[in-house]
Design a binder for these strands. Sequence first.
DNA 1: ACCATGATTCGATAGTGGTCGAATGCCTGG
DNA 2: CCAGGCATTCGACCACTATCGAATCATGGT
Lengths: 118, 118
Amino acid sequence: MPNQPLPVLCCSPGTGHPLSATEAGELARVFKTLADPVRLRLLSLIASHADGEACVCELSSAFELTGPTISHHLRVLREAGLIDGERRGTWIYYRVRPEPLAQLPAMLVRAAPTAVSA
Amino acid sequence: MPNQPLPVLCCSPGTGHPLSATEAGELARVFKTLADPVRLRLLSLIASHADGEACVCELSSAFELTGPTISHHLRVLREAGLIDGERRGTWIYYRVRPEPLAQLPAMLVRAAPTAVSA
DNA sequence: ACCATGATTCGATAGTGGTCGAATGCCTGG
DNA sequence: CCAGGCATTCGACCACTATCGAATCATGGT
């Protein structure tokens, strides 16, 4: 199906309805979590790290921000279920939980046959 | 390639680097636009409309919000390049610009082979 | 020319969120 | 058990934004 006219964010899972208020609320909550450059960089830093995990000290040193601020952003990401923290001795290591992000595009774009592939 | 271990948001377009500060800033700007339930519903309402366009009066009547508030959200969407408005007589019709949303998933997920397909 | 209606703009207000400094928790090493 | 460092929590401050009412602009009909 190469040319469907309406590629964009139009439907709840199977149907052709627009988003309900509650669906929109949940989606917006995810986007709100991602709507901060520091959090995006934190996520990508963790994900691009060798073992898929990074300790807070490494993450902090990548920004010109205080510890509490980094901690705040990590907390937001953690409470959104996007990352997971584990203490090992002195340090705390974070790793990305792939599932919620992986299902995001599916929620967003229902049928974008042309432009997405790249 | 069925099982790559790190499916998520890790890389700038071709490389293995984490997001740069400016890349993260641009991405965050898009997410911020989408991080509101009203705007998400507006987008989906427009996209799911018969001709791919909807007039403000129809959109307004779908919410329990005042005219100025809807106008504000439409303006945010318009300035983000996600929709486009055109006046025809008394009414103003909005339609979705598919491109920016279509390229979003590609920016977000670099390789999420398993979970995305659905 | 005027009025009615659709939509935006303006100004003000309340709520939210990012940031910091200080204080607290938690673990390791002496 | 105490000292030191990593990380979080707490409290406060500032900026931004969602929302509204009132005013303004634009169009079409009378």
